[in-house]
Design a protein around this nucleic acid. Structure first.
Lengths: 338, 338
DNA sequence: GATTTTACCGATAACGTTTTCGTAAATTAA
DNA sequence: TTAATTTACGAAAACGTTATCGGTAAAATC
């Protein structure tokens, strides 16, 4: 039982392979009659083009690569979903790789994708990526690459992001406007731009509202986990008795904080207001429900693919294009924790 | 700037393309000297085999497909992670598609993967898949396919599963042994085997311990969400005043139940004991922490790929093999909700 | 009736790799 | 020395598709 090829159809119909190929692709120089004959036979024989041959010939795989720091993550899951959905609409498949927040792995994965000849790459930087040569190498080869969420200013390519600084500003401002004077911040790791920006947004808000920045109110979550939120809250309460607000770098950390505050019977928001970041579905489920910043993961995935798609078509047609940074809106979701 | 090919190397070294190819793959009929020459030049020219050509020629893509009902799901995320990790070790890439719990989509995605000529397929059935022709078609084409987690008895292929019935039995038994007499069950949808089995395990435990099965203690969660757990708990409390235990089909549902019980100031586990299913990381984080059944997602992904890999090699070598069902152990994780 | 145009089809090359088979040279055995 | 064997390489085909370039016949135009 061999696979049915163009040759088989050609032999049965006693025409050439070339004509069969052209008939199936609706070339103008094939008569309607032969087109019909070919298409009908292809249908009944259940002809499926050999995509290996097509890839080889057209030098396109209709697949893109996606490198993400961590698959088991609510925000990234949503991004993945958005990417896959959009890619499918355009007939693209998505190969997913995980960098585990490691620069070395990220580099290796990128190499792998390039050697597999994907048509484009979507990626979010790992936390310890400080060198961008591997990415520039890909761009230099004219392989479209779009960064999302975790990006770097020094990489010259298209990006899909949110304005972390502004969002953090709004979050902190919301705490201030609800009366908080001593606002703590559980920030993310030192390196990725996001946590820096969120930290800066926090600082900016304090400054704007004439609140003195107090470094001992800032804790750094290296892993951004529930436990960190939980433990740092204990430490915070122990050392900073007058704290009345908390802005956490992510909902998970905020939920950890809430768990500890509940345990300590500290009233939220009466004694301390808490705001998170991301709008994870659990944040509306816990008690008290968590005020947060909505970060549109699904949309980000969708937009990132759309942008990549545009660049892939431009490159295929050898048309010039400019890199673009797409900024997605975030919104403040007010619930019971503030 | 063309891509460097075997031909280029051959021309520079004034030998044939065939020899270059063989030298790079360490064929025995190439002298050590030429091998060395070829390999060194390949290295300096940074030769990378054109994988389109390789795929075409060898009829292998070194990629597998993965169809999953829902990407944004803690358990499946872990499975994905396990699959990707293991696949990478063996030099395979993974294309991920999502069926959205729809039979039609699942069928379409499977077709897509087959036409893309993946070397194998890993999948977990959608909730409304009751017809298995599309899957049998794939198996008939000698494309290895392994099912995991959500499977069906009528499909004859390898599977990686847990014993849902036994696990549910143990969960219910645990409630009984901690003194519960009137145990409710928030079950999953009617169709997938898992929720049926978990329901049957629940019933079996009641039977074993001479507790009369009461259908009005069973609620069906069609979407298996937090909200369902939350709302059914209200209904449960309203209608069944003597209920003292709850076995939920998933941690998320159980956490919804706990949220409602907390709201109603019903003491857990004093008045009602609650047990979930999956051991989602949040279940250790909430108050009270949730007793649950640990379901090894990462391991399942790993094992599923391993099995698929074995079948792929068998098929390539045209060696016969038998389908195998691999059952992974689960464990009872006792926390504060029971 | 001669010429040009149009419609339709096929021969052929090409993509880069792998693998089979043949053969010349080198080595060993007789 | 001759015959048999081994070693080392190359020629060539093949995988299935797409695209270019002609060519022939019919139709249209002059």
């Amino acid at each position: 039982m061999r696979e049915v090829t163009l040759k088989h159809i050609a032999e049965i119909l006693e025409i050439s392979v070339a004509t069969v190929s052209k008939a199936l692709k609706d070339y103008p120089d094939v008569s309607p009659k032969t087109k019909k004959r070919v298409k009908e036979l292809a249908e009944t024989l259940n002809y499926k083009p050999n995509s290996f041959a097509v890839n080889f010939r057209t030098r396109e795989s209709k697949t893109i690569g996606l490198i993400i720091p961590e698959v088991v993550h609510h925000f990234f899951s949503n991004v993945i979903k958005g990417i896959i959905a959009q890619a499918e609409k355009k007939g693209y498949l998505v190969i997913i790789l995980q960098s585990n927040e490691s620069y070395q792995l990220e580099k290796k994965q990128l190499d792998l994708l390039v050697s597999k000849r994907v048509d484009g790459v979507l990626m979010s930087l790992s936390n310890d990526t400080a060198n961008y040569k591997h990415i520039n190498d890909v761009l230099d080869r004219d392989i479209p690459l779009v960064l999302f969420d975790k990006t770097a200013k020094l990489i010259n390519c298209s990006k899909v992001i949110i304005d972390d600084r502004k969002a953090a500003f709004i979050a902190t401002e919301h705490l201030i406007k609800s009366g908080c004077k001593h606002i703590a911040h559980f920030r993310g790791p030192l390196l990725p731009l996001n946590s820096i920006d969120r930290f800066l947004g926090y600082k900016k808000a304090l400054e704007t509202y004439d609140i003195k920045y107090n470094p001992s109110l800032v804790f750094t979550c290296n892993d951004v986990t529930f436990e960190e939120g939980f433990n740092f809250t204990q430490e915070l309460i122990n050392t900073q008795s007058n704290v009345d607000g908390l802005f956490a770098v992510s909902d998970l950390v905020a939920i950890g904080a809430i768990a500890k505050l509940n345990e300590l019977k500290i009233k939220i928001p009466d004694q301390i207001s808490v705001i998170g970041f991301s709008n994870w579905f659990m944040s509306s489920a816990i008690t008290p429900s968590l005020t947060t910043i909505d970060q549109p993961g699904y949309l980000m995935g969708k937009k990132a693919f759309k942008r990549l798609f545009k660049e892939m078509t431009k490159i295929r047609k050898k048309q010039p294009f400019k890199y673009k940074t797409i900024e997605l809106p975030t919104s403040l979701v007010i619930r019971n924790s503030t």
